[in-house]
């Protein structure tokens, strides 16, 4: 999320992470430690790399990927979209939640090749211009996180839950958000944030 932090400094967490990734890539540590493994990975990619076209946050991306690449790894490792998080990589925690054709889905159990022809929205695509999505704002207002690792997934899930029409009360929010685990147990504030955003989003009739 780009913007201003609590102290009012301008910053970009994504830009920071991208710089970090590039710096790491410039030091071929892994290759030196495991030359055989690296060569094998490359051989596999070379023989099985397939062209993939993805539509993410309204933009088109053309890549060549090993068919094994998940949508989550594609976002994080190939496109620098590190908002969706890898918690378990097994469909159990919800940290990787994105929207596929408007439905919330787990990027870690989606193959990138199978996401072709669909429209993917990630946490990076939620804010409109400089304005946070009401769910993002509600998470800040309600202090709905501690470490923040689960937060992008929680927010993507909450946005979908509200548009599914099942965020009317705390019990429904708990049930509807049960696919998003929070290791810091910020649950009470998450529920409050989702309820706040739901009130706000359902009060005004949605623009077409």
């Amino acid at each position: 999320m780009e913007g201003t932090d609590h102290a009012g400094r301008g910053f970009s967490r994504r830009a920071f992470l991208e710089t970090g990734t590039l710096a790491a890539a410039a030091v071929p540590l892994a290759a030196e430690a495991r030359p055989g493994a690296r060569a094998m990975d490359e051989a596999v990619a070379a023989t099985t790399g397939v062209p993939v076209m993805l539509r993410i946050n309204g933009g088109e991306h053309r890549l060549t990927l090993d068919p094994r690449t998940t949508l989550l790894d594609t976002l994080r490792e190939h496109l620098g979209l590190t908002g969706a998080k890898k918690g378990c990589d097994q469909g159990q925690c919800g940290a990787c939640t994105v929207h596929v054709d408007g439905r919330r889905a787990l990027a870690c159990l989606t193959l990138a090749v199978a996401a072709q022809g669909k429209s993917v929205t990630t946490i990076e695509g939620l804010a409109q211009g400089g304005t946070l999505h009401p769910v993002q704002q509600a998470f800040i207002d309600c202090d709905a996180f501690q470490c923040g690792y689960c937060t992008p997934g929680q927010i993507m899930s909450a946005v979908a839950l509200i548009s599914e029409g099942h965020a009317g009360n705390a019990a429904d929010v708990c049930e509807g958000m049960s696919g998003n685990l929070c290791r810091c147990a910020a649950y009470p504030n998450i529920v409050a944030a989702v309820e706040q955003a739901a009130r706000e989003l359902t009060a005004v009739p949605k623009a077409a």
Partner: peptide
Amino acid sequence: AASAQLRNM
């Protein structure tokens, strides 16, 4: 069964 995300997939 499962979670909302999994039920969509």
